[in-house]
Amino acid sequence: MLYKLPLAGVLLPERGGSPNADRIASLYAVTLVIAFVVFIGVVVAIVYALRRYSEKRHPVATQTRGNTRLEIAWTLAASGLIVFLAVWTFIQLPGIENADESEASAAVIDAGIVPAGKDQPLTIEVIGRQYIWKFRYPGGASSYEEMVAPVGVTVKLEITSIDVAHSWWIPKLGGKFDALPGYTNETWFRISEEGVYQGQCAELCGRNHAVMFARVRAVSPDAYVAWLARQKRENAEGLAAAKADRPAIPEER
């Protein structure tokens, strides 16, 4: 119910890019409702006590020192609430943590991005460095700052860093995953709608931390394949130019 309202980015985390982000948002919605009820309960109790038991209205205080039964009861109630939240989280967890194993869409398979069958994700490496993200695609292509990914297939990310700690985060595609030198962190997304999903580095990584942007541009499988081929060719040209010690882009005359 709450989940249907346009509350993302106001009362709920961002969602709408990948199923894991959606599931986090709905898990958040459940905890938010509980939190709201508990908070309102506490505030109402305090305000009631302050008004009802003010010096004027209640001149003589009742000298109670506690009530063991009541105290046991609310300790159990608080524990019960926590247990409920834990159980609910564990039920939701597989859908958030485990990469979607369903088969890629026909268009993706036809384009030859991944083979047919279950659990065939596309793996993209994400490498953080001051102050730009680098992406390495299967087959040797790479890009900076903007990742291009096909819709309709599970994309697994292998995240690391070559200098300081960074954090990979595209809110609509799920939670943060820190990029640490010497470690590989893994997450996934599966986008169904073409578009650009924005994010930025979320771990203080130096003076220009604020401008270390990240983008995922989700495109059709065919467009992805075409982009990949061009990117690979341009990368190769750049490399060859560097080897031959001449500018990659011929100087204009």
Partner: peptide, 14 residues
Amino acid sequence: LNWIATLFHGSINA
């Protein structure tokens, strides 16, 4: 909860 219960049935001097 214990703190809130301390307020209940008190004679609160604000």
